[in-house]
């Protein structure tokens, strides 16, 4: 008896929670949280720095779907905050914003399906675009600081949104494609 077997590997399963999704979520969150220790101060600013780890949020979303992306951002940011001494839940709305970034990057098949099915270079480009879009949109959620912290609209814009988004857009545009480039052939080889 000869049988071709190919257990679930279709894109319609974006919202299905398999063991794979659970494990990648946990790994994404831990890696993001840990790698947040790497911070490169942006010249000419005091409290703005590039955080290469941020690229992971979009990468995990883009490569493994919205659930993995959301968990990576949400829990990973909480872990990073905890390790830096800020406290895991002190800025839970920021963690949620990170989660939304991963989620939106994970929805890439809805708006970048063409690139995702293309060559490896196109996939990498798709990753960069998804990362940038997700960062710009996801961090809109930090305006909840107006409610929670009593911040002013412009204050959020100038002291929070712009610095964070500028740094993270740069990071996403560079780190996500690098990871896609390396991961794609490996995933292909492991091809379950």
């Amino acid at each position: 008896m000869t049988a071709m077997v190919s257990p679930g590997n279709s894109r319609s399963t974006m919202w299905e929670v398999t063991s794979r999704v659970v494990v990648y979520s946990a790994i994404g969150a831990v890696l993001y949280g840990l790698l947040l220790v790497i911070q490169l101060p942006l010249p000419g600013t005091q409290n703005v720095s590039l955080r290469p780890a941020f690229g992971l949020v979009s990468f995990f979303g883009y490569a493994f779907g919205p659930i993995v992306g959301f968990f990576t951002g949400l829990v990973g940011n909480a872990i990073g905050d905890q390790l830096s001494g800020w406290g895991a839940l002190t800025s839970w709305n920021w963690s949620l914003a990170n989660g939304f970034v991963g989620l939106i990057a994970g929805l890439a098949p809805l708006y970048l399906a063409r690139l995702m099915d293309g060559t490896i270079a196109q996939k990498a480009l798709g990753g960069a675009i998804a990362g940038i879009v997700a960062t710009l949109v996801g961090f809109l959620f930090i305006w909840t600081d107006m409610l929670i912290g009593g911040m002013d609209f412009n204050s959020v814009l100038i002291t929070e949104y712009i610095p964070v988004v500028v740094g993270n857009v740069i990071v996403s545009a560079i780190v996500v494609p690098i990871l896609v480039f390396i991961w794609a052939p490996i995933q292909e080889r492991m091809g379950r």
């Binding site: 831990v30 780190v175 690098i178």
Partner: peptide, 22 residues
């Protein structure tokens, strides 16, 4: 420069991520 330094972190970031996934 900043971009060079960002790229400088890849020898740590990339194996950490890929090995964890593998």
């Amino acid at each position: 420069g900043l971009i060079t330094r960002l790229r400088n972190t890849t020898p740590v970031v990339v194996p950490s991520v890929i090995n964890a996934l593998v």
